[in-house]
Write a protein that binds this DNA or RNA. Structure first.
Lengths: 381, 381
DNA sequence: CGCTTATGTTCTCGTTGAGAACATAACAAG
DNA sequence: CTTGTTATGTTCTCAACGAGAACATAAGCG
């Protein structure tokens, strides 16, 4: 590490602070935050302004003292595109430094990988010189960020390199549940947590381990298939090829199955919503299905807490409904699955706050993560 | 980050390189390794030598070129004490920079926390001014590095602060299985792995997730109780208070139980060894017990691989025997538990190479980790 | 014995962030 | 309206850092 690296290092820290700040940072505030002098901050910011990365505007004066400036994303600075590709639809948004986001376009698709050509055309329509990176969330495991394995779409080992044209911008592709967790860690309820878990419950369960605000990816970037651990003692065979998976007992497929329906992917989601509504209206049969789901959910969470010791566990998707309707049952089942000595300090189980667009938010963050690095900044300056 | 920090930063990198090197590093080699100039290396090393952290001795000349020096631990430099505290015995060793280790003393104990006074006396006997930190491995979960919960010793919530005298040196306490994993990651078969798992199989299973060579501890430093996840569908109640734990089907207790014995802690270990020998001698009943253990082990590993996507999984303790006797069964069960699309690239399952003293080795590493930091070095210089 | 090779040593240089002194723009109090 | 207070911006000096070049040195090789 040389002394030239030092400058870049501090500039990345500064950019990261600007990006992560909840409210726009002032230059003086940033200096305090990073523990650097006002003079140094001026120099660093000046260089970043000249590189069109941040833009200084006079700040509203607040109390005494000489007015300072606000550090805002530069109007002609880099942009990140965020994509959320689901089973039958996709959404394209642009995200500025700092997280401000605007949806650009969205569409449906025919459940073939042909959708990527469509998406590529959309990206191309909105592409400008400002585009620096693309983050893409996809509902399924993606090995090495390239090979899609989405059983229920019949995508066996779809190679993204075959479908993303040669002139695609720099792109990082990741699993949607993982990115939803990343979103909670960066801009949601897991903010500041050193060790946390997030689970997105839809047809089945996907999730991620979050350490110091970063989503763990594993060796082949396919970590997070917590739903495919046999945590609930079910003997059923799972679509994934294994047996007894947790997802067989939690999620909309499990709800449908519990009511004697035939679980599928796509149709199951609306059915599950119906079951939820029936349960809220007091239907006993639907209520029992929800009960079973909640118990299985809690059971699995307890087991995972034993292994990974998170300080908090956040849920999204159907998990939020389950938490609203059956928090006590979930917590009780979780406590039962915890080792006895841990039961007096169980992990908090909390509803995610980022909302429906969590994968999109996470995709944007993942995109920015590829940019807010020393190597990127070094060539940009 | 200031420019003075830069010097310390590079010096820590240098020390770390010296500590981690398999064979003693030469000064020129270290410069190449860190990507710094020979002049800079000379300055850094000179300062470290003056601080009695490394010692330069002329290196054997190897081929052409001006002879260089070897970077060795300084004869009056800091030392780390490593402790391994088991159910009925303890071992104290001293470890030098670079990993060289010498056992100083060991003893039995009466299964009460009184052992810590004994150990403290031993530490005091060997303590010199060179002692910089102590790493301690304990066979059980330790919340916040302080509160011991070891059910089978009847230690419910033993507070180490009550048993480690006021004048104890700076100490880091950690779980033995986790430290065994750390040892494999630093000086064993997991060296260089970005994402790996290690499991120590004894009475039950403990383990750790290793990311970039560091053992993950969780929010309360009690992560790693993988053995207390219900991965095998057992309905039995576990001593830990939960139900269906993996450890009920894997480990020496499980072996004993499979043969109709009454599992206990302590006695079970020898019984398990007997069973192993009988199985090796062709005893069918013992063989079946081993079969069951192997199948349950593999089943759990597959599930965990789905969730955490390790590039390798190493085993120690009884795991090494199981791997020797039933590798195929373990791998087959693991594959069955893997999601189908992952079966063509399963995680490697490998025997640990650090051996019996892995917890001690890991304890030493953990001790050194508290020292090889910028803050420690800053005040040392 | 001279050539090659790898390393140690010395010196200069550009860059970095710290720190102090001063300038400036708001507010507050009389 | 003036003066003092406060927080920040700006400028300049300075010590320290690592890079790089030039040179010195100690080995092996032919």
């Amino acid at each position: 590490m040389t002394s030239a690296d030092l400058r870049v290092h501090n500039q990345v820290r500064l950019l990261r602070a600007v990006h992560d700040a909840e409210a726009p940072l002032t230059r003086a505030g940033a200096a305090r935050l990073l523990g650097i002098g006002r003079n140094t901050a001026a120099a660093l910011v000046g260089e970043l302004e000249r590189a069109h990365l941040v833009h200084e505007v006079p700040a509203e004066t607040a109390g005494r003292g000489r007015p300072t400036t606000l550090l805002l994303p530069h109007p002609s600075g880099p942009l990140v595109f965020a994509l959320d590709v689901r089973e039958d639809s996709w959404t394209l948004a642009r995200a500025e430094l700092g997280g401000a986001r605007e949806v650009l376009e969205s569409g449906g698709h025919d459940r073939t990988p042909g959708v990527f050509a469509e998406i590529g055309a959309a990206v191309e329509r909105h592409r400008t010189g400002r585009l620096a990176a693309v983050g893409m969330a996809i509902a399924g495991p993606i090995r090495d960020g390239r090979l899609l394995h989405i059983a229920h779409l019949g995508w066996d080992e779809v190679d993204l390199d075959d479908h993303l044209g040669r002139d695609w911008p720099r792109t990082v592709v990741d699993n949607d549940a993982r990115l939803a967790g990343l979103a909670e860690a960066r801009r949601g309820v897991l903010h500041g947590a050193g060790c946390a878990l997030h689970f997105h419950i839809d047809f089945d369960i996907g999730g991620t381990l979050l350490l110091d605000g970063d989503a763990q990816r594993g060796a082949h970037r396919i970590a997070g298939e917590f739903g495919h651990m046999p945590l609930t003692g079910s003997g059923l065979e799972c679509m994934c090829g294994a047996r007894g998976c947790w997802s067989l007992d939690v999620g909309s497929n499990a709800l449908v199955r519990h009511l004697g329906g035939k679980p599928g992917y796509g149709t199951g989601r609306e059915l599950a919503q119906q079951i939820l509504r029936r349960a809220e209206d007091g239907d006993a049969e639907a209520g029992a299905a929800i009960d079973a789901n909640a118990a299985a959910l809690g059971r699995g969470l307890g087991a995972l807490a034993n292994a990974l010791d998170p300080e908090a566990i956040s849920l999204s998707g159907l998990g939020i409904d389950l938490l609203r309707l059956r928090r006590d049952a979930i917590e009780a089942a979780c406590a039962e699955g915890l080792m006895a000595f841990r039961r007096n300090t169980p992990p908090q189980i909390i509803a995610g706050t980022v909302g429906e667009q969590a994968p999109l938010t996470g995709a944007a963050e993942a995109g920015w993560d590829t940019i807010l690095t020393e190597t990127w900044l070094r060539e940009r300056l």
